[in-house]
Structure formats: C-alpha cells, structure tokens
Amino acid sequence: MNETLSIDEIDRKIIGHLRRNGRSTNQQIAESLDLTAATVSGRIRRMEQSDKLNVVAVSDFAAHGMDVLIQIAVEVDGRASSDVAEELAALPEVFAVFLVTGRHNIDVLLALREYGELPELMIDKLSKVRGVRTMRPSIVLDVIKYQFESGPQVSGGGA
C-alpha cells in the first residue's frame, strides 16, 4: 500500500464524519453518505494504511488524576540546555519539555495531582537540576482552547 493515494470527495466526507465522531460505525457513516458499509470500511483502511488518516482517542488530564497544570520558563546557566532538558524530562511530574529560543531556554509543563506536590518538586527536584538558573512559573487558571490532537508527533514524547 505504498502507491500514492489521492483523497476524493467521498474520502473527505468520511474524514469529516470521523472528525466529528471517531467512533461512528462504518454502518452509520455508510447510511449518511448513501454508501455501503464495506465501501466505508475499505476506504478507511486504505487511508489508514497509507498514513493519510489516523483516528485517535485523546484523554483529559483529569482522567489521569492530573488536575493542576503549571507552566515554567526555565533559564539555563553553565550547562547545555539540551542536557538540562533531558534531565527535567526524566521527572514523572514533568508532562512536557520544549527547548526554545527567546528570553528563557526551556519551556516546561507540569501536570500534578494537587498543589501540595509543588513545593517539594520545585525546591527539591527542579531546582537541584544542575544548570537551572531561574524558574518562572505560571499557574494555569483556565484553559480556553487546547487543540493538540494534530500537533507534532514528537520523538521522545509519549504516544
């Protein structure tokens, strides 16, 4: 299934359906588009196998007991940023680590069960990582938008 696959209008309609509900059955999609379930199933499989389509399940931080999100801008001194980033990434409370350009060098997102975890984490773990010069934390108060399903599929990340 390595031949170039073009996506036609019917494929687009199927994708539209799956975007709205990734668990629509082939039968449901078929009925609404006036196709057979076998056609729908075949087209989905073809698009998936050629990496044109990937239906995914995403779960909320809360489903994993992570109710507190804190973003930290980390400034590095006297050590390679990438080494500091690797060491930060090894901590389980650290959800995401990005090396960035700008005023700070590393952008960290913590996902915690409760605020009570923060003092020990910041004072005894993050601050002890060699090369961390300053940390400027921002407590996430409200998430207005969070659309990362289609974000970059980074290496070293989770799924």
Partner: peptide, 28 residues
Amino acid sequence: SIAVSAVKYNSRIVRITEKAALDGEDAD
C-alpha cells in the same frame, strides 16, 4: 519563544475543552 525541539510531549493527553456532541453514535 519558538520551540526548537520537543524533548518530551504526549499528544494523546490533552485538556478537552469541547465536549463531544453525542448523538447516540457508537462503534459496534
């Protein structure tokens, strides 16, 4: 600040801000 590389990230755990419009659809 522009991200040069993602050292750690899980795109499958997110904050779901819009609840699904459920119309009784389930995969069988």
